[in-house]
Design a protein around this nucleic acid. Structure first.
Length: 650
DNA sequence: CGATGTTGTCATTGC
DNA sequence: AGGCAATGACAACAT
């Protein structure tokens, strides 16, 4: 299944390239960055699962070694960067900045929040690209100042169908600033990535005729602005900066850009309307409610101050754009069934944070995907039961809303139960009554599992490995697969009426866990089960980390073997070359000696016999003729040795 | 149907 | 002393 995932990611990248060729901008980069953002947290998290990961990441990134086959996400990441870099190096004029693309994202997201998944509207009759382009044109026409002028401008800027110049720059600037503020101490690779983005930003500003490099969709920027509380003033400064840059350019271009700026501003103001992000206005009450609920139970001392919204938004928002794309395109392509785990992680985030508005959108994105394929996608998930594959239907992920944002299962080991989980005041620990109320009466968190009636009934335990896998399905399907897809511990917990998910049990700090054990009036059997679940969950992660480390070690050793083998071959070649050189030099010396001796005469006037004389070069540089020492000594020695051998035989 | 790979789990050890 | 990570070993299941 990792192959399928890889195909999907590669395919997504290729799709991005194709879309870029026709002028549609897809921000797979930010998507991947959002997906791999846990890399940043790896260094920060106290969990050993995190501390395990950096070494092979650094090795892979710094030494240029091949990516570990068991770490496909790294492969994806670097492959994506490589491919995107290749695309970007092809030349900017062919990839004009796409106002329409991100505008579609924005509009579709907002509309879908109200009207349901619009991405599937056109998918029946046209591929995603065409439908996307149509939407883009339609959207641009709806806007007051965009439209024909913009298209006319873009025809001059590049071959893209309908482009505008500056909006991408603005967004890129925003993203760069956001990344700077957001990632104070990223890993090397990500830092490099961020640097690349900033460099490209500068390039984009200074070269307007080259406007179409990598531009994250505005949806990311807008939401990141929300997430990071980036002031509108900053955006205005950016706008003014771009406007200055544009002042030297052609009037029509400037016009188009000014229109983009206005659109951008409009989007800035409309971000609150969009409001599905964690820091957004719309979701704020939800987050506060979650926090309140959390504090009802937890002392919260161990929870960090990390903003849940940030983590959620970073993961969710890139997905929104990607989902919009994949939702349309993948329905008609072989890639359609190969959604990455990260997609479902982000689905989970969306379902948590902006469920009211994003639910239908996400479902629309997933409608065209074969559930079987989705199942396959998760089938190789080591933590499929609670984490990565949990997706919107995962009880654990739903309740531990923050886990998915930071969770990257293949990322350097089993990081599913991340420290982020503990640090985020999601629904990590809720009160007994509150929990059941929320999960059963409200489907706010897309908790298909716990919201299903099956939860109250002790499930008929069918302990199969298949049952530990969870698929992102619709509500109905999710309920159908609910019991079957639960892990054994999950089912045990349900059977014992344990009001906590496995994720919660595993990830809660030990202090809180002890408080839970003591403060909920659990029976001894329940306490034992809770401890077992916690132990098994942690051990499961430990085993996954252990195996990953083992594989990394094997890979490292194999690479070392290859390196040493290459070194040995190189040294052997050098040795052979040296021997050849020495032989040639010896022959030259012999010939030179013969020539010299042939010109010399002995006392009787006869030429010196090269067999009997030789030339010796002294330390002082003088060359003297010496008689050749007969191998009498050697022969005598040989005789001696022969005698010794004979004596030994005797 | 056996080989191989994957994953979860248990037991143990050491920190 | 208890928690937990690490890891070998085993079993169940998937491929």
């Amino acid at each position: 299944m990792q192959i399928a995932k890889k195909y999907f990611t590669e395919g997504l990248i290729q799709l991005t390239i194709l879309l870029s060729l026709i002028g549609v901008r897809v921000d797979i980069d930010s998507y991947l960055s959002g997906y791999y953002s846990p890399l940043i947290e790896i260094n920060l998290g106290p969990s050993s699962a995190y501390t395990q990961t950096p070494f092979h990441n650094l090795r892979d990134t710094l030494d240029g070694y091949s990516v570990h086959p068991k770490c496909p996400e790294l492969d994806y990441f670097f492959a994506s960067r490589r491919l995107l870099d290749e695309v970007r190096t092809l030349g900017s004029p062919r990839f004009p900045t796409q106002l329409n693309a991100w505008l579609v994202h924005q509009v579709s997201a907002a509309e879908e929040a109200d009207d349901g998944p619009s991405t599937s509207n056109n998918s029946d009759t046209s591929p995603g690209l065409e439908s996307r382009g149509d939407e883009a044109r339609d959207d641009s026409e709806h806007l007051p100042d965009s439209g024909q002028e913009v298209c006319q401008t873009t025809s001059e800027l590049g071959r893209g169908p309908c482009t505008a110049g500056a909006c991408g720059f603005l967004k890129e600037e925003d993203e760069a600033k956001v990344k700077e503020e957001e990632e104070p101490a990223p890993l090397t690779q990500l830092a490099h990535s961020s640097t690349l983005e900033q460099e490209s930003l500068l390039e984009g500003i200074t070269a307007l005729s080259n406007p179409a490099e990598h531009h994250p969709p505005a949806i990311d920027i807008e939401n990141w602005n929300n997430l990071l509380s980036l002031s509108v003033t900053d955006l205005e400064e950016l706008d003014s900066l771009v406007t200055e840059r544009l002042s030297d350019l052609e009037p029509d271009i400037t016009t188009a850009i000014s229109q983009d700026v206005s659109l951008h501003d409009a989007m800035v103001t409309g971000a609150g309307v969009f409001g599905v992000t964690s820091e957004g206005v719309g979701s704020r009450p939800v987050a506060q409610q979650q926090r309140t609920l959390f504090r009802l139970e937890s002392t919260g001392s161990s929870h960090s101050d990390a903003s849940p919204g940030m983590a959620v938004g970073l993961a969710a928002l890139p997905f929104a754009s990607v989902c919009n794309l994949t939702g349309n395109v993948l329905q008609h392509s072989a890639l359609g069934g190969c959604l990455d785990e990260a997609v479902f992680d982000q689905i989970n985030q969306l379902g948590l944070e902006g469920l009211d508005t994003m639910d239908t959108q996400l479902m629309g994105c997933l409608e065209g995907i074969d559930p079987q394929v989705l199942e396959d996608l998760d089938s190789d998930s080591g933590l499929s039961l609670e984490s990565s594959s949990g997706g919107p239907v995962s009880p654990g992920s739903s309740e531990m809303s923050s886990s998915s944002s930071s969770y990257c299962e293949d990322e350097g080991g089993a990081t599913g139960y991340s420290s982020e989980v503990d640090s985020l005041p999601s629904k990590g620990l809720v009160d007994h009554s509150t929990w059941s109320h929320i999960d059963q009466s409200e489907s706010v968190w897309h908790d298909h599992s716990y919201s299903s009636p099956a939860f109250l009934d002790p499930p008929s335990v069918t302990l199969s490995h298949k049952g530990i896998k969870e698929e992102p399905l619709s509500d109905d399907e999710g309920q159908q697969f609910d019991q079957r897809d639960m892990s054994r511990d999950e089912m045990r917990a349900r059977a014992m009426y344990i009001p906590f998910s496995v994720l919660q049990i595993v990830n809660m700090p030990v202090e809180e866990f002890l408080e839970v054990l003591e403060g909920h009036g659990f029976s001894p059997e329940q306490v034992t089960l809770l401890r077992d679940i916690r132990r098994r969950g942690k051990n499961k992660l430990a085993a996954q980390n252990c195996r990953k480390r083992k594989l990394d070690a094997i890979t490292g050793l194999q690479e070392e073997v290859e390196r040493l083998r290459a070194q040995r071959d190189r040294l052997l070649r050098e040795k052979q070359l040296t021997a050849k050189t020495m032989g040639a030099v010896g022959q030259q010396i012999k010939q030179l000696t013969r020539d010299v001796l042939a010109r010399l005469r002995d006392d009787s006037g006869q030429p010196l016999n090269p067999e009997r004389f030789t030339l010796q070069c002294g330390a002082n540089g003088r060359v003297v003729v010496q008689p050749v020492r007969r191998p009498a000594v050697s022969t005598s020695a040989r005789n001696k040795t022969d005698k010794r051998k004979k004596e030994k035989k005797q």
